[in-house]
């Protein structure tokens, strides 16, 4: 009996629930909605397609370590107490930034090089007085290609052995390319 009463009450409630949103008709809602989605959709597409602007530079600069003029090359050997001229050929499609060279020991065989050719390596050893050279080389603005010609003296008292000769070059936009060469100091 109790159950039936509650059903009756419920029956009264149903139509009022239906009526709740009748002040804005279904048709009006659908219209509003289509208009809204048309506007938003158009805005969405427009923003998505307006990308045809002056192209930005996404090209990396290049380092040529194989050309006959380039020095040192992969597996080059240098001599303590002597000078050598590092010749580095760099180029960019738009404008070069700067070059950095870095000579550090590889007595621990910590890495390969970027080059395919493997060089003969001495045994692993603890450094005593390894050569360390870090040098930034600015390039005058407006250059698309440049040849670094840097005279470097290798002190006579440094540890001989396996070294890395690292070259980093940037372009004006900040793209960087690096090369790591394995060299030997005798």
């Amino acid at each position: 009996m109790h159950l039936r009463n509650s059903f009756r009450q419920g029956m009264m409630d149903v139509p009022s629930a239906h009526q709740k949103h009748k002040n804005i008709t279904m048709k009006q809602q659908t219209k509003m909605l289509s208009a809204l989605f048309a506007i938003l959709g158009a805005a969405f597409l427009m923003t998505g397609c307006s990308k045809n602007k002056a192209s930005i530079d996404t090209e990396y600069p290049t380092i040529d370590v194989t050309s006959s003029a380039a020095f040192p090359k992969q597996c080059s050997e240098l001599v303590r107490g002597q000078k050598f001229t590092a010749t580095i050929l760099v180029a960019d499609n738009a404008e070069l930034g700067s070059v950095s060279i870095d000579i550090h020991h590889n007595f621990d065989h910590h890495s390969h090089s970027t080059e395919v050719e493997e060089c003969n390596m001495g045994p692993v050893k603890t450094p005593a007085k390894p050569l360390l050279l870090v040098k930034s080389i600015p390039i005058a603005s407006g250059n698309k290609s440049y040849t670094v010609s840097e005279e470097i003296e290798i002190p006579a008292d440094v540890d001989p052995g396996d070294y890395h000769f690292m070259i980093r070059v940037t372009d004006k936009e900040g793209w960087q390319t690096l090369k790591g060469l394995s060299i030997k100091i005798n």
Binding site: L96, S98, D102, V134, K135, M166, R168, T170
Partner: peptide, 13 residues
Amino acid sequence: TAEHDYLYGAGNQ
């Protein structure tokens, strides 16, 4: 940037 730094940046960009 286009610069490298040898003193603070160990030769890095």
